[in-house]
């Protein structure tokens, strides 16, 4: 799937570091860099860079084929609750579908999202893998 170079570049902080928004008014944390808290509407917000570890809340195994996607199939799309509290959408890799379970500890890693082959840009961003013991 073709991505937009400019949109990807503008959202680099989110793609590379899962930037979150922390609301100073209600204390809640939301996904992405925002100017307004989606929970209470306050504009008193700050950007938070999370540790990248969290727990798998839900997932779905997809065999849907899009052009340029074939080598990555099947894809496991997921929702992860980060240790900082925000729930983020993502892709789970380095695990077979039959090994995945709700509650699995995961960590964010830099991977290729896609690339405009053969000569275009490579789009990098964070995906999730099962947590590696450290």
């Amino acid at each position: 799937m073709k991505l937009s170079i400019s949109i990807h570049w503008r959202r680099k902080e989110t793609h590379y570091r899962l930037a979150l928004t922390k609301c100073r008014a209600c204390g809640r944390v939301s996904f992405g860099e925002r100017k307004v808290c989606p929970y209470c509407g306050s504009k008193d917000v700050t950007t938070l860079i999370p540790s990248g570890t969290g727990t798998l809340l839900s997932y779905s195994v997809s065999y849907f084929r899009r052009e340029g996607d074939e080598e990555f199939l099947p894809r496991i799309t997921c929702l992860v609750k980060l240790d900082e509290g925000a729930i983020v959408p993502g892709e789970l890799v380095d695990v077979d579908p039959d090994e995945v379970y709700i509650g699995m500890k995961v960590e964010a890693v830099l991977r290729r999202y896609s690339s405009d082959d053969p000569y275009g840009l490579i789009y990098y961003g964070l995906k999730f893998i099962p947590f590696l013991k450290g």
């Binding site: 080598e71 990555f72 890799v93 380095d94 890693v109 830099l110 991977r111 290729r112 990098y124 995906k127």
Partner: peptide, 13 residues
């Protein structure tokens, strides 16, 4: 390396 890994992603880790 998996299809979505390369020298950048492994070096990052």
């Amino acid at each position: 390396a998996a299809p979505d890994e390369d020298a950048v992603t492994m070096g990052w880790y």
